[in-house]
């Protein structure tokens, strides 16, 4: 009995840990909201990109956002389940230097959440694209962590 219960809860956890959600579009954000936990929402962007066509560059979108020194930001994104693509976040500073990205190339791993305590106020660029240029729908969220 205990075994089954553990198995069941494991599956449940696995499933719930899955960061893919359905319903591309504005509604996706509401579903994604749960992942904020205690962070204070600042900004979100909808991301919808087609499949990379042969010979074309990787489709991506970028948004600018001012971050203030002294705040720690929690940044994450949610995928819509209907689409294959898994989203990758990358953050650049004013000088366009890469600060951080959510995909660990070496380990072939997506990190779901980025915590960024900012000490240089300025306008940062947030770029989003999908792994392997697959077609994808996602929403990116920036919030201030408590």
């Amino acid at each position: 009995m205990k075994k089954y219960f553990l198995l069941f809860s494991l599956i449940f956890l696995v499933l719930s840990a899955n960061k893919s959600f359905s319903q591309c579009g504005d509604a996706l954000l509401n579903i994604c909201h749960g992942r904020l936990e205690n962070a204070r929402f600042i900004k979100s962007w909808p991301i919808q990109l087609p499949e990379r066509a042969r010979g074309e560059t990787l489709p991506q979108v970028s948004f600018k956002l001012p971050l203030t020194s002294g705040n720690t930001y929690k940044i994450f994104a949610c995928d819509a389940t209907e689409y294959e693509g898994k989203v990758i976040i990358s953050i650049r500073n004013q000088k366009d230097d890469l600060v951080v990205t959510s995909y660990m190339v070496e380990q072939n791993r997506h990190i779901p959440v980025i915590m960024f305590p900012v000490l240089m106020s300025g306008i940062y660029t947030f770029s989003f694209y999908f792994e392997d240029g697959k077609e994808g729908c996602a929403v990116g969220v920036v919030s201030i962590a408590d």
Binding site: S69, N93, V99, V100, S102, I111, P112, V113, I114, M115, F116, P117, V118, L119, M120, S121, G122
Partner: peptide
């Protein structure tokens, strides 16, 4: 510099304004 803790990426910002 980047750290990983609790499944999250934590950035250590060395730039200053």
């Amino acid at each position: 510099s980047i750290k990983e803790s609790d499944g999250m990426l934590v950035v250590v910002d060395n730039s200053r304004s």
